[in-house]
């Protein structure tokens, strides 16, 4: 690590003051470095450095009261991998990611196609459909907690008024239904993001293609299958990548919704990190969990990039 950075640094210095390939190149180089370095610096200090510290801490036993660190190699990872809680949280995270993203995309693409039609009032509708995306997590959580509350919530009230249940149902007190509703809230908040991305792409669809297909007598399904869908695919994949990353690392909605409970029923990996670090005072394992998450995220994004490149190739 150190030698690489040292080499990198001398390389930068050499290029900075080089004379060989002309003034122009040197000026460009200096300008480029100047333009990029504030960003590099801030990212290094406020994103990379804490991440490296987290990585580093994952190999130590950290005493929470004094922060004394003792090296313990891979113990934290071993501890973690043998804990059922970690694996349960892992699968819960997968369920949360798959559940929310799949429905976000089904609903989001559907709504985007709908709002792409020539309908009166569609501009207003477009604006209003995006509202959930603008609702901060804290408001979202308290809204849904209020709506689902067994004592005062409107949802139970309606279920009872329509005679669907005879007594209020405490949706957030059962691990499975709690997770289900956290997922529902995630779908509600982030579907608009998908709508936004897909609509933007739909607006720049090459009209000639569509016209030609219509002249050839293509049905609307064929039109969608062979023209619209391939055009959307790259954006769908990029959006999928973004959504997956964000959903996987999402902390606030899940945490503020039911604080990881009941019985750890909504403890996804980020919530587990918080639980380990602050409630259980196990800083080492918390750092190890975080590192494991990062590795998973990298794997996921690599997979998507492969898909994305393939989709772009198909298009051209």
């Amino acid at each position: 690590m150190t030698t690489t950075t040292r080499r990198l640094w001398s390389f930068i210095k050499a290029r900075w003051s080089q004379n060989g390939s002309g003034r122009m190149a040197r000026n460009d180089y200096r300008l480029a470095i100047m333009m990029i370095s504030p960003a590099i610096l801030l990212v290094l200090v406020f994103a990379m450095l804490p991440m490296l510290q987290g990585l580093y801490a994952s190999f130590f036993q950290v005493e929470s009261a004094t922060l004394k660190m003792t090296f313990n190699g891979l113990d934290n990872y071993v501890w973690l991998l043998t804990k059922p809680l970690f694996w349960q949280s892992f699968w819960r995270s997968i369920l949360w990611v798959v559940g929310t993203t799949v429905f976000q995309f089904v609903l989001g693409i559907g709504i985007a196609l709908l709002l792409h039609q020539e309908l009166k009032g569609r501009n207003i509708a477009r604006g209003m459909v995006l509202f959930p995306y603008l609702i901060p997590a804290i408001v979202l959580s308290l809204t849904w907690r209020f709506i689902l509350d067994p004592t005062m919530g409107i949802f139970n009230r309606m279920l009872m008024d329509f005679g669907l249940v005879s007594r209020p149902v405490a949706f957030l007190s059962k691990p499975h239904t709690a997770l289900l509703f956290v997922i529902a809230a995630g779908i509600w908040k982030y579907t608009p993001f998908v709508v936004m991305m897909i609509l933007a792409r739909l607006q720049v669809i090459p009209l000639e293609l569509e016209e030609a297909a219509k002249l050839d007598g293509a049905s609307s399904w064929q039109l969608f299958r062979y023209i619209t869908w391939p055009w959307l695919l790259p954006v769908v994949i990029v959006t999928l990548l973004l959504r997956t990353i964000w959903t996987f690392r999402q902390f606030d909605i899940v945490y503020l919704f039911s604080f990881g409970g009941p019985l750890f029923g909504t403890t996804t990996l980020p919530v587990l990190v918080r639980y380990l670090a602050f409630d259980a005072q196990q800083i080492g394992p918390a750092a190890a969990t975080a590192t494991a998450m990062l590795v998973m995220l990298l794997l996921m994004s690599w997979g998507y990039f492969v898909l994305y490149n393939r989709a772009e190739e198909n298009l051209s």
Partner: peptide, 21 residues
Amino acid sequence: RMTLLAYMMPPIILVVPLFFI
């Protein structure tokens, strides 16, 4: 590549080290 990494980082990882920084 670094920005991509930083972009994917779960904020919960950063918060304790950030406090000390």
